[in-house]
């Protein structure tokens, strides 16, 4: 059929064609594997970026709380102490003054109110460090204030040992509950509200419910400052939040790990 040289040429030609096809197949296969590698790298970079952002956010939060503590301390020890001193002088003056007693009385009341406001600001900035009362007592105190000042009845059911809860988680929990109860007090037009805190499989479960007019669904998911802060704090603690709201009331369920390092 073919001579030897002709056979060689034809075989070389067919081999060359096969080589071209194999080369293209190799390039396409490599491109496919390269694509997978790129996707893995991009996912890894994205996760590292998220982790970095979380670390930055944690650091910011930590810094904020430290600054608040410092301000609270300075207000209490500095301004508060001086006002207390002035109040004492006025008390003495009131007891010994013969004239302008009404004026002295007014000044005394003004200073007493200012002192009370300073104490409140200081307390709000960093309640745990100042009071050393613990989460449960702080919540009871806050709820007592709300019950006095509003038409809504607030209740607390605290069923969790405080010793096992990380201080950071306690602080964030207090802030979250404070924000939620403040929202109920100001906006919900509710007659009853409750806070329940218990331990559920190693997680602190906080349930805040009310029978008010409900949150608008859009507001529940949107970025109102208060809700945004709550979401941020839950994220810092690596917890979960679920908000369920209707015209008959709102239920907020938050799960936080009792220890942020687990």
């Amino acid at each position: 059929m073919f001579s030897e040289s002709e056979g060689v040429v034809i075989i070389a030609y067919l081999a060359g064609c096969c080589l071209v096809f194999l080369l293209v197949a190799a390039i396409v296969t490599y491109a496919f594997l390269h694509q997978k590698k790129v996707m893995q790298l991009r996912t890894q970079l994205h996760e590292e970026e998220l982790s970095h952002q979380q670390a930055v956010f944690d650091a910011l939060q930590e810094g904020q709380e430290q600054e608040r503590t410092r301000l609270a301390q300075e207000l209490h020890d500095g301004v508060g102490a001086k006002l207390s001193g002035i109040k004492m002088y006025l008390e003495h003056l009131k007891a010994h003054a013969a004239t302008d007693t009404a004026l002295i009385e007014k000044i005394f009341d003004g200073i007493a109110q200012t002192l009370e406001e300073v104490r409140e600001i200081s307390h709000n900035l960093h309640p745990l460090a100042l009071d050393k009362k613990g989460l449960k007592q702080l919540l009871l105190d806050y709820i007592e204030q709300l019950n006095i000042s509003g038409s809504c009845r607030f209740d607390l059911l605290f069923d969790i040992p405080e010793e096992g809860i990380d201080k950071t988680v306690q602080l964030h929990s207090y802030r979250i509950i404070e924000e939620l109860l403040s929202n109920i007090h100001r906006h919900a037009c509710a007659s009853m509200a409750s806070v329940q805190i218990h331990l559920e499989e190693g997680m602190m479960e906080i349930v805040v419910e009310d029978n008010g007019i409900g949150l608008d669904k859009a507001r529940a998911n949107s970025e109102g400052i208060g809700l945004r802060n709550i979401h941020s704090r839950v994220n810092v603690c690596r917890g979960m939040i679920n908000i369920d709201s209707s015209g008959n009331g709102t239920s907020v369920i938050i799960e936080l790990p009792v220890n942020t390092h687990t």
Binding site: V20, L23, V24, I27, V28, A31, H34, Q35, K37, V38, M39, L41, R42
Partner: peptide, 18 residues
């Protein structure tokens, strides 16, 4: 290492040309 091959028009043209 950070480019998606298959999103590149030149990739397909070059495969066809090759």
């Amino acid at each position: 290492v950070m480019q998606y091959s298959w999103e590149h028009p030149m990739f397909w043209l070059s495969i066809g040309a090759l």
